[in-house]
Amino acid sequence: MSVLVLVEHDRGTLADATLEAMAAARGLAAAIGAPIEALTISAGADALRDVLAAHGAVRVHRAHHAMLDDYGPEAWGEVLAQAVRTLAPAAVVACGTGRGNEVLAQAAARLDLPMVANCVSVEPSRNGVTAVAVTRTRWGGSLLEDATAAAPTMLLSVAHHTYEATALAAPAAGEATPLAVELDASLARSVVRGRTERTAGVTLATAPVVVGGGRGVGSADGFAPLQELAELLGGVVGCSRAVTNNGWRNHADQVGQTGTRIAPDVYFACGISGAIQHWVGAMASKHIIAINTDPQANMVTKAGYAVIGDLHAVVPAISAEIRRRRA
């Protein structure tokens, strides 16, 4: 009985999220006295053995197949399902990224087992290792759910950015063993067929400063002063769903539950009321400065700092002051 970690990677490049899953698996493995093993899908991931060992995997199972050279949700899910049948682990742990949850769900469907998504805490229940008590996130993180689940193998994903990846001080060597898999040719139908690379640059998710605008901005053109402030600070513009719904900005700029989660040093929230679905995408910001005409707005009462006033006057005044000091 092991705790098996699903290794997420893209054509051999490890996703950092995998190491979060390793960290979560370590707690569970210790609680049930089981070793941690990892599953790498595709020969291209063989070289990941050392980093996986450094993070606690005593064994890495390698699945090789010509169909696995690139990612495919069905092929990967089928490999994971076969790994569960062959190895009978107590639990599978994946990170709750797009791919992590997708592969886990594909495996869960094939095995007809429950899958508990985006856990922030996992404990084996007193009934033994085949049952767990978890806390998981719902509503994109605005609500927590305590839940139980029971199955011969528990399929769990852990919420992204919850567990901290930490290498072991004295890791074991990490054995590698081949895992035989048989894949039906039909599974190739959902393998990635092509890609367009994104041009590098500051993204909303990683920007040090985000200047966000909401319904209070009033129009697409109304974003020009916000854009200017963002550029002065080396940041980017973000927005609320009210803005994208009105067609004022592209959804790529939307912050929140169904948009992007941001974590800048400073988030300016201009003319944004602070609905929970927006807040959940902004709450990881180090500092929030709300600019709003309504002193009772949720964004104002939750932010660290606030300016009460019309954003159309306040935002240009801030830019002007920055330029004045730099001159």
Binding site: L233, V266, I289, A290, V300, T301, K302, A303, G304, Y305, A306, V307, I308, G309, D310, A313, V314, P316, A317, I318, A320, E321, I322, R325
Partner: peptide
């Protein structure tokens, strides 16, 4: 919440904070 001020007059305080 630390109130930095009302309207455009708050700009210097905002920039101090930045």
């Amino acid at each position: 919440t630390v109130l930095l001020g009302q309207g455009p007059d708050a700009a210097p305080k905002v920039v101090d904070l930045l």
